[in-house]
Structures are given as C-alpha cells and as structure tokens.
Write a protein that binds this DNA or RNA. Structure first.
Lengths: 339, 339
DNA sequence: CTGTTAGCGCGTTCAC
DNA sequence: GTGAACGCGCTAACAG
C-alpha cells in the first residue's frame, strides 16, 4: 500500500542500495543522484520501514523509557525533557508506564524491550534484580532519581544536602518540634526517602533536638497522602510547629489539612517542601528547588553519548545543582504552639 | 547474542514454525509439545524480535501517541491512563511529544510512525492538514480534546455546557463585570477555546450584560500566562469583579496575580476555572470538573476496539460527563469593586 | 560512484 | 499435528 524502497529505486532509475545510501546520507552517492532520489522519495511519500531496516541493520533508533506514574508532575516533566532530546537526535521513544507492582513485575519478567530498543532510560532507579534484567539486554542504560546502580549512568541530586537545608532552615527560625512527612511506603530500593530522612535526623541531632518518632508520618509522595500524614501529626500530644515534607505535593496536601483544621500557615505551622513543583510558586511554598527537566535532558544526553561512543564506558553518577527557595509558608514559631 | 527462534526450535527438537505457532497460541500444536516449547523458550529467555515478526506479519503491536507538552498536568494524565489501557492489551506505546511548532511540522511531514504503528492516538485534535497526513497512514485513528475530525474517533466533553455553568455561576452570584482569561494564542484549529468563549458570550447576553472586549485577556493555557492576563485585566478602567479562566492553570496564575496586587479572593475578585486540576482542591478553586484520565482511557479503549473489529467503522464522537465544583474562590461581589 | 548478492528473524502458506 | 520453503523490506558486503 505505501511505497517501498524498490518503488523509489525503479522510479529513480537506480538500485535499492543506492536509494538506501542516498536517503541515509551515507557517502558514495553523487550529489545529483542523491537529490534526484530525495525528490522521488518525497513525491512517493516514501519512508523506510523501521521494522525492515532494524532487522537488517540491528539498530532500532528507539529508546525505551520506563516511568512510574507519568501523571505525576515530576516524572511527566522529566519524561517531557528526555523525549525532546531523543527525538531531536532522531530516536523514537517507546514508553512503559510502570505504575502498579503487577505491571512492573510483568515488564521485568517479559522484558518487551528486548530486541526493540538501542538503549533504556529508567526515570526511577530500578532495584538490583530489575537492574540485572535490564543489563541482560546488552544496551546502554541510564536512570534519574535514586542512587547508584552498576551499569547505569545516573543523573540525580544530592538529597542529603537538599533536605538538610530545608530542615536547617526550620531550626534556624527557632523551631524545636519539627515533624516530617515522608514517602516510606514507596518501593524500598531507591535512596531518595532514606537520604532525606537521614538528613532530617542529622540536622535535628546537630541542633540538639531529640528525635520523636511520633512526628514522622508517611505521605506516600501524593497530595492525598500528605494530607493524611499532616492530619496524623496534628493529633499527637504535642504537635509540631513546623513540618518538612519530602515532596512539594505532600506539602500541598499538608497545607490542605491545615486549612481544614483552621490552622494558619505559617503563623501556626510552618511547612517546607522539596522539588519546587510548578505550582509551588503560586501557593508560595518554601521549598528546595531541583532541576527537574534538566535531569531528564541530561540523562538523555548522556545516554545518546554512550550510544555514539560505546567504548567510553558508563559515565557514572552526575549530580545536578539544588537551591533553597524561601517563600511564604515558613516563619518563626508562635509564642504558643497551635491549639 | 540473544536467542533466536531457531535456537529454541533446535533445543526443543522441533521446527521454527512449530515454535512460532506454539508461542503465539495458534492452533495446530499438541499440548505437550506446546508446554515443552514454552519451557525451553523461558529457559533461553527467548522473546520474538518485534522487527522480524512485524516485518513478516505486517502488525507492529505498537500504538503511536502524539502529545503536546507531556509535562502539562492535563496531557500527562490523559497519556498515563491511555498507556495503561494499551499496555494491558499487549500493545507498546511509541510516544511523540510535539511541543514546538517545528517538531510538530517535522513530525507530520516525515511521519516517522509510518509502517511502525497499528494505530494512532492524538491527545489534541490535529488540524485538517495534519489529520489528512494521519489518515494516509491507513490505520485506525482516535483523539481526545477539541472537536470532531473525519476519520477520527474523538472523546471529549461538552465545552459549551461546561463553560456556561462556570459563567452562569458568576452571574447568579450577582456579578456584572465578568472577565475572561482565554487561551486564544494556541493553535487555532481546536474548538476548545472557541466553544468556551462562545459560552461566555452567550451567558452574558442571556443575562443582559453588554460584552466588553477589554475584559478578555489571553492566558496561553499556562500559569504564567494566566498571571499576565489577570494583571492586564486589573489595569482597565473598570476592572472585573469576577473572572472565568478557561483552565485551572490559568486560574492559578490569576490567583497569583491577585495575591501580588494585595487583592482578596473571593472578597475583591471571584475566580472560576475549568478542568479540576489535581491541585485545585488544595487551593480551593471553584471549577468545572472533567474526567481527564477517563478520556484517555476511553479513547484508548475505542481505538483497540477498532483494531479488533476493523469493519465496524469509526465510532464517532463520545461526550464524557462534566460537573460544576463549588469551592472557595467565588462569592457575591463586594458592595464596592476592587481599588 | 553504483549494482548485485545475501542475509537479518520471523510468520505464513503449502505439503506431508 | 508438524516441517520445508518462501518472502516481508531493508542494509551490508562485495564486485565492478
């Protein structure tokens, strides 16, 4: 139904190989022949069949991208940026949205990307077993978010430093009852929640503040989870005067919980988030900014680089800069706490 | 490097054809042979090469998805839902992120999906020229958002009805100076901004309110654009006491502009949005809710249905339900307007 | 610089 | 129920 390479060859009065060479910009074709072939191909609306060319060449010009929840702002933004880099380089993106544990498991056992992609970018660091499955593909691998992994180029941020700045800010304001909304119920293999919690504990210890486990609640990295977690923190015997939420979305949930409890922010409770969500500025949320699109683009670039220079080895770990952003949800504690 | 079908055939002591039939569940293979082949294939980690099988069969088991800005919440959520439906049905998703006019143009002239996909889902209705290009692919087509198009199954909402409810709510509260933040600088071919504006004009006319062009400003469907637009509306001689923003993100931008101008919402100015963004609840934004993930899932389902029953023709246009959501950003006008 | 010859790995007729 | 032959459309190696 659509034109094949032999149709173009016949119409241009040359052989199929010449058409192939001409259209892919390979040397060994005179300029006039090349131009004429291009014209004929355009007239016939010819595009090489990817299936056939990858079968013949072994290359697919396709990158597999594995994302957990595209709908979440963070991963959507990372994906957006990575896709732009890939498509600008002529690669297509095969997207796998691994939200539930079942789809995740099925993906790594069946590995539908086998023989379909030239490289894989995982938006969240895979656990060791999953990483081993990906390594078996024999293609370059990269990941954003969540620690190091053998065989992977990883682009991330220093979660320790970022979380420390958030908590230290609260300490500097004079808070002593500092709670945390964390994301512990997520898959346990990534280092992000662990590092951010470690930083929280370290800063408290540094400030001579005893750690109270009752001031930690799990927010599942979602708005709703953040709301639930904040509500939990409000019913402990001595509620916190300030809360560090491990993500902006959980911080927004916490803000909603506070509003429902008629508590003022930052007068009654201070909130600091992490990520610098696109709407954090609208809400006035104090947070730790990280380059989200930047990480996606950088990981994509490094992956393409490995594809171009296979002998270079995997570039290892890249740290992107972070920045504390002061807005309106943090202030010194009130003379008397909430309630 | 990885196992081929002949490796499995040899290891199982059968022919390649039998392996092919057995693994794809085709009839004509005894149960014991089938089981044994499955075992051998699993042991060898065999997966059929998609390139080879689609070259041979003509099917790709891949769906092309065209998205404008994945990073935007709306499209990210639609994509997320659609991808889940596709992958549950065994299809892979080839993602094209057509943010800029250049990438968009390049996509539709080169049509990299040609011979690579069994169907195409566009997350935003293509213009007539783009639609013609897609029709030339000869595969089932579907779209979300933005009116009807020949050859496409379209899943959307009734923008007129939704926008009417938003504006009528403001009228019912007693507002007479009602502004609008629209998204007119977007590609002109989709009906969404047109329909929502039409509804705005109709409701004003119904209420006997003269239309003042100075009360309309373009917000580009972004938070920043909404902020700019609201700022413009505040400097006209008699500013609006209420504003209908054609999207929640623009409404959030408007809220930020108002906050910067020290104006209270809803005391000084009422704001109503459209979409029910995931964070609108956090902010307390009055809006018109539409099923976002639902539209993506439904469009994906209808596309798969066309793939299963090619003779059924294109199912046409599906309208999803919408719902007005009253929250905290709307109230009757103050006795005296702002300023 | 260009054409010819062989596959790439699989699905799909046909025979048996 | 199973195997042998052929071709999907293209690229790579070799001639010339």
């Amino acid at each position: 139904m659509t034109a094949r390479i032999t149709d173009v060859a016949r119409a241009a009065g040359v052989s199929a190989s010449t058409v192939s060479r001409a259209l892919r910009g390979r040397p060994g074709v005179s300029d006039e022949v090349r131009d004429q072939i291009a014209a004929v191909a355009a007239r016939l609306g010819y595009t090489a069949s990817r299936s056939a060319s990858s079968l013949a060449s072994g290359r697919t010009f396709t990158i597999g991208v594995i994302a957990p929840y595209i709908g979440r702002w963070f991963f959507g933004t990372v994906l957006d940026a990575a896709e732009q880099v890939f498509s600008a380089a002529g690669y297509d993106v095969l997207l796998y949205n691994l939200g539930s544990p079942e789809t995740r498991k099925r993906f790594f056992t069946k590995l539908p990307v086998r023989k379909r992609v030239d490289a894989v970018l995982s938006l969240l660091i895979p656990d060791e077993e999953e990483a081993a499955a990906l390594r078996s593909l024999g293609v370059p691998l990269a990941s954003t978010v969540g620690g190091a992994r053998e065989g992977f180029t990883v682009v991330g941020i220093d979660d320790r430093v970022g979380a420390e700045s958030a908590v230290r800010h609260l300490v500097n304001l004079g808070h002593r009852r500092i709670g945390m909304v964390s994301g512990a119920s997520e898959p346990l293999h990534w280092t992000t929640p662990v590092d951010r919690r470690r930083a929280y504990l370290d800063v408290l210890a540094d400030a001579g503040i005893a750690h109270d486990p009752a001031l930690e609640a799990d927010g599942d990295y979602t708005v709703e989870g953040g709301e639930r977690a904040m509500t939990e923190l409000l019913v402990v015997s001595r509620p916190p005067t300030a809360v560090f939420a491990q993500s902006d979305e959980m911080a927004m949930g916490a803000l909603r919980a506070l509003r429902r409890h008629r508590l003022k922010v930052p007068d009654d409770v201070s909130i600091v988030g992490f990520d610098d969500h696109e709407l954090s500025d609208v809400i006035g949320l104090t947070t730790v900014a990280q380059p989200v699109a930047g990480q996606g683009a950088e990981a994509a670039r490094l992956l393409l680089q490995q594809l171009d220079e296979p002998e270079a080895g995997t570039p290892g770990h890249v740290q992107m800069p972070i920045r504390f952003v002061l807005r309106d949800t943090t202030a010194p504690p009130a003379p008397r706490g909430p309630q």
